[in-house]
Amino acid sequence: MSVISPPKPRRAPEVPREPRRIAFRQRAGRWDVKLSPYLYISPFFLLFAVTGLFPLAYTAYVSVHDWHLIGGQGAFVGMQNFVDVVQQPRFLTALRNTFSIFLLSSVPQVLAAIGIAAVLDANLRARTFWRMGVLLPYVVAPVAVSLIFSKLFADQSGLINAVLATVDLGPIRWHADPLSSHVAIASMVNFRWTGYNTLIFLAAMQAVPRDLYEAAVIDGASRLRQFFSITVPMLRPTIIFIVITATIGGLQIFDEPRMFDQLGQGGSDRQWMTVTMYLYELGWGAQKSFGRAAAVAWILFLIIVVIGLINFAITRRISSSGSTRGGKR
């Protein structure tokens, strides 16, 4: 068996691939070829059927009923729960907060991650040390992160405002002011996840064939040009992966804002209540309207899918336009 595989020709994506896939018709049984793909993905779907599909269907069923968390199923109400929820001012507040925190966390996070990864991809001394150091925050449990940061961000007794005071700044009203509270929450998220995304980018960068860079160097491309013409297009699957997972995770943000104060309801004016917190408050809070909570869950699901698709389209466009440029070189 040989691993000699010449450097991949720069190819227009997708097109030449198709015939290759058909090429798998060797002596091995047809069934092996036909069934294996399904067999290999089956563990996920089997498990999903038990732990995912039922909850999903259950939620859908609940969302069209008048359903008290404890009291259980009531009358069928059709879309009424959805209508009720959308009309609540609090729902709009929650949407605003979620998007604000999402933008404040995911955008800087992805940009920082790709930047740091590019730096780490260089020929550094003590590589292992730097790489592990960057990932360090990820080992701190979210609960612990919240505990630590809630002490750092305390309005009067917190470290950050204390430090700001020494240079005659602040105090910043971390809890009262909506934007400040979003920044504080986003910084918890960024703290824990930037290093994680950095390493994912780094792994992908290492997989980029070095020959491409050599060729680029010969052609006299600058480092920056190399980055945008080779690295970014080659990272496309990874960028798509990170953008989609960050979108999903970001729009579902729950733990950090919930633990940002001791009441866990998102502030006195719900200034940092996110959609999942709203969902939780509807279902588990005082009202215990499981039906409305389920409706919010489905609305959120649809929003995530739409935003995810938009992000996917944008990301694909950006990185493939880069790829074309690279190809034309």
Partner: peptide, 15 residues
Amino acid sequence: IATMAVPTQLGIVPL
């Protein structure tokens, strides 16, 4: 991928 978009908080009771 879409299954990731299901908010986990709500899955708790059925799960």
